[in-house]
Structures are given as structure tokens and as C-alpha cells.
Amino acid sequence: MTYYGMAIDLGRCVGCQACAAACKVANNLPKNIAYNVVYTKTDHDWDGPFGTAVARGAVANDNAGGTFPDCVLEFLPMQCQHCEDPSCLRVCPTGATKKREDGIVWVDSNLCVGCSACIMACPYEGVRTLEKERPEYYLDVVVGEYDAPVHEAGIVEKCTFCKNLIDRGQEPACMQLCLARARFWGDLDDPGSAVSQAIEGRAYRKLREKAGTKPSVYYLLPPERKG
């Protein structure tokens, strides 16, 4: 049985934003929608606030915390965690939120009425967008995949795990291409998959597990510094 998941190596992520940029273009995302945000984080409290991001109103990315030269600077890429027991699924009144057998959680734009229940129920703030206005785009041409998600006012959008690409044998757009080699994706049920291999033997965290939603994204913890 295939069950998709992702691993992100926090010891390697350098906040380059390639995953975020790839997501924007492949999914033809409008200006105000980002499925994938890379936060700058100035602490090691992985269950705490995600951090700051220009895409979420910060003045700038990449600024360290602490006191020079004893600084803290980490990066946390965030998107839908494609939970095994998603709270969004439980609260959706119309059946628009769906979960596939392979673990992908998605929103059917034909059924979504924009009630925001999923947004309220999700333990991970900011991974969903409900656009009130007609979306605006950077370009006047259509970009991305021909079957990119539909973007309309009044429906909730979030990371689809690029199920359109997965279903034709390709990788999610954010896997294209991590220059730090920090992102891994694949079948968690296959011990030989890239994601299973990446997790093997590594200390990891899943974020906000107390919410009980069993997320499918594994955050591999940075190695100890040699000093």
C-alpha cells in the first residue's frame, strides 16, 4: 500500500526558497496564495511558533536571533502536513475536504463553500488560504501545469501534494530541486523509498503532534555541532 509522506532535513535547509518558488509556478498560484512558506526561525522550539516570513508579513527573511556572535538562525519550510487523521477532514461540512488512500489530503473546489471550518480546525496556521477577492496574478499568461489547481474567490486552497503530478508518475513541485538536498518525498510504506531512507536512523520531530492529527511530514533535526 502506498502512503505518501515527506521528510525535511532541518540541518540542511538553508532557506533558499526554491521549494516555495517551484510551488508558486507549477501550481499557477496567484499573488496572495502560497501553499509552501519557508519561515526564518530564531529558536529551536520546533513545537512553538513557525517563525517569520516576508510572505506572512515580516519585514525581511534570513535575520538571526540571539546576541552576536551567539546567534540562532534556522529555517522551517511549512505546508499542509497531510495528516493521517486530519482535523480538517472531520470538520468539513460539505465533504470538500478529502483524503485519499495514499494519504493525500485535498480540497475539492467544486464542493468547497469557503466556510473556513478547516482553517479553524487545522493545528498549522497559515497553510490554507481563503481568498475573498478574485485572484490577481503576476503574469497575464497561464503558467505551471495544465491541470494546476483552480483558483477562485471563496474557496479554500492549500498544498495538494501536487497530486496531479504524482498521479502521472512525477514528483511534487517542491521536490524540484532542493539545492541543499534537504527534502525527501515518497512512499512511507516502502522502506527503500527516498523518504524512508532519509528518516532511517535520524532524530526527527513531527510538528504539533499533541493535536493528534498524525502528520506525514517528518522534520529531521540538525546534527550536533562539532564546536
Binding site: 533558499c16 526554491a18 518558488a21 509556478v25 503574469l139 503558467v143 530541486l177
Partner: peptide, 25 residues
């Protein structure tokens, strides 16, 4: 419509960044 990293005989040299990924713009 899109740009992705080209495949090479040596995967360690495959490469792209946010700039390459947004060439369409």
C-alpha cells in the same frame, strides 16, 4: 509555462534555484 532542473548523468550536479524556477516571469 514552467522550468525544472534538467537531468544529468551525475545527479549531484543537477541544479536550479528560485531564479531558474521563475524564468517564465
Amino acid at each position: 509555462v514552467r522550468t525544472t532542473a534538467g537531468r544529468l548523468p551525475e545527479p549531484e550536479y543537477e541544479r536550479i534555484c528560485p531564479k531558474g524556477l521563475t524564468q517564465v516571469a
